[in-house]
Design a protein around this nucleic acid. Structure first.
Ligand SMILES: O=c1ccn([C@H]2C[C@H](O)[C@@H](COP(=O)(O)OP(=O)(O)OP(=O)(O)O)O2)c(=O)[nH]1
Ligand SMILES: [Mg+2]
Length: 504
DNA sequence: ATTCAGCCTTA
DNA sequence: TAAGGC
DNA sequence: GAAT
């Protein structure tokens, strides 16, 4: 059932020929890439934390250089020089590297380890000071500022200049970046929240652990770190994180589309340290193969004007199939980003009430775009393999040569990730919220909904069947609204925010 | 000890 | 089901 | 990592 079920339908898995990186012309596709976003985490909290293009949670980032197999050439050039050096270092120092201390895992909370994962945090078991700060009474206003969705934020204000604790924030952000890359889910959440707290303080400087401890979202560990930052102007943990060879390798592996914390750590445990090692020593999934093959492309950002070109291309093709179908570019593009990690399309049509009514269109669109060489790989697509109503299509694409636009100094295909989301008109509003994000905004909004005994997902806002009662997705709950974006905000008591104000 | 959003696809 | 991703 |  593995390979067989997968292959049928429209497009075979792609046949990316490493050396021949020019998808166009080849009929049918070779699909590849897609993005891998590690995006930020955290529910409430946010204000002006996470960064759009600067950090953008993407796996990219400077440290993301990589070394690819010699036979794999990206854009005609073999890249990986400096990375090679880093890797080389890793190789050597590898032998006497401590067993990667704790775990940093964000896996299952199952085998919870009690001991602090931070060596430096080892403090005496000082009795917890009662920190039962009175929580904000939100019952009256119905407006809980602890939720990021209620604070909003624009990509501009992310660079909060004059904040008395700006330096502390900057260091915490680096820690956040680190945990984002290393994919430590919950620490990311914790740091995001702490940063939000600090960012909201505009009238004073926090300079001691004691002082910090009184703040929301600041526990023992973060308070201690804050003091260390203020007093020593440095943070050992960060210093270590940035230089630890194993962490670097983990980040390298996490940059591969289709590789998460579990796989990355397993490979490291098995002794792998470079992408070469992986190509030769492990069994890769289809996505991972493409992830490695197009490591550079897929970890690079897409300029806004290029996203626009891609959108035009796809829309034009869609119009030939069914002019009534509407395509909206969501994601960071809709939020006004100057660069995006991928391109996200919402596909809808007036009068539709189910994905099935759109699946035929999708299949045709994908087939046509594949024939043209625009789509180059299929990474996930329920729609094409099953006869039911698949709701999404994830793959890769390459913008063809456009004279005067991307052929300066010669055209070279660049693989980009593309996501298509099928949306019946009845779910348009909820889907728009979902696909516009950002992710933190969404989570905040959903958390807020749940606290009001409602459930928000990409299809709609539902009235739940009691908090404890259900929990089993069997109980759908009653649909409150799915069509209108604004109504959903309103029902939740959240002030309307334009897409560009949803950077959390 | 649990929760931190909620859902879809792949292997 | 575990893992990865949106 | 923090709150409950
Ligand atoms: O964990 C996630 C990831 C994404 N999304 C939503 C919000 C996001 O805006 C949209 C598209 O996902 P994508 O990964 O493309 O993020 P983006 O906001 O478009 O940023 P990028 O520029 O990296 O593509 O899906 C979530 O709800 N949860
Ligand atoms: Mg996107």
């Amino acid at each position: 059932m593995r390979k067989s079920s997968r292959s049928r339908a429209y497009a075979p898995r792609s046949t990316p020929s490493p050396s021949t990186a020019s998808p166009l012309t080849t009929l049918d596709l070779d699909i590849a890439g897609r993005n891998s976003s590690i995006v930020a985490e955290s529910a409430n909290v946010c204000s002006n934390s996470t960064i759009p293009q600067a950090i953008s949670g993407q796996k990219s980032r400077d440290a993301m250089k990589m070394k690819v197999a010699d036979d794999i050439v990206e854009n005609g050039r073999n890249f990986g020089d400096d990375l090679s050096q880093i890797i080389g270092e890793v190789r050597q120092r590898f032998q006497d590297v401590p067993p990667l201390e704790e775990d940093e895992a964000d896996l299952k909370p199952s085998k919870a380890k009690n001991y602090d994962s931070d060596a430096e945090t080892q403090q005496e078991p000082k009795q917890k000071k009662q920190k039962k700060r009175a929580r904000k009474d939100t019952s009256k206003t119905g407006f809980d500022e602890r939720f990021a969705c209620n604070r909003g934020g624009t990509k501009e204000q992310i660079e909060d200049k004059s904040n008395p604790n700006a330096f502390i924030i900057s260091v915490f952000r680096k820690m956040l970046d680190y945990y984002t890359q290393i994919n430590d889910h919950w620490r990311r959440l914790a740091y995001t929240r702490a940063i939000t707290t600090l960012a909201s303080i505009t009238d004073r400087r926090i300079s001691s652990a004691h002082e910090a401890r009184e703040l929301p979202n600041f526990g023992e560990s973060l308070s201690t770190k804050l003091e260390e930052i203020v007093s020593t102007h440095n943070l050992k943990r960060l210093q270590y994180a940035m230089t630890d060879p194993i962490s670097q390798v983990k980040m390298l592996f996490l940059g591969i589309y289709g590789v998460g914390p579990s796989t990355a750590e397993r490979w490291i445990a098995q002794g792998h340290r470079t992408l070469d090692d992986l190509l030769q020593g492990v069994t890769l999934t289809f996505s991972q193969k493409i992830g490695i093959e197009h490591y550079g492309d897929l970890n690079s950002r897409i300029p806004r004007d290029e996203v626009t070109k891609m959108a035009d291309y796809v829309k034009a093709e869609a119009a030939k199939i069914d002019s009534k179908v509407e395509l909206i570019v969501g994601g960071s593009y809709r939020r006004g980003a100057t660069t995006s990690g991928d391109i996200d399309f919402i596909i809808t049509k007036e009068g539709t009430t189910s994905n099935q009514q759109l699946s035929t269109f999708l299949i045709t669109l994908v087939r046509n775009l594949g024939k043209q060489g625009f789509l180059t790989a299929e990474l996930a697509a329920h729609s094409s393999s099953k006869d039911h109503d698949g709701s999404k299509w994830h793959g890769c694409c390459v913008l063809p040569r456009i004279p005067g636009f991307n052929d300066n100094g010669g055209y070279k295909p660049v693989w980009r990730r593309i996501d298509l989301l099928l949306v019946p008109e009845t779910e348009y509003g909820a889907a728009l919220i979902y696909f516009t994000g950002n992710d933190i905004f969404n989570r905040s909004l959903r958390l807020l909904a749940s606290k009001q005994h409602m459930r928000l997902n990409q299809r709609g806002l539902y009235k739940d069947t009691t908090p404890s009662n259900d929990r089993l997705k069997g109980a759908e709950g009653e649909l409150i609204e799915g069509r209108d974006e604004r109504k959903i905000f309103k029902t939740l008591g959240v002030v309307w925010r334009e897409p560009h104000e949803r950077w959390c």
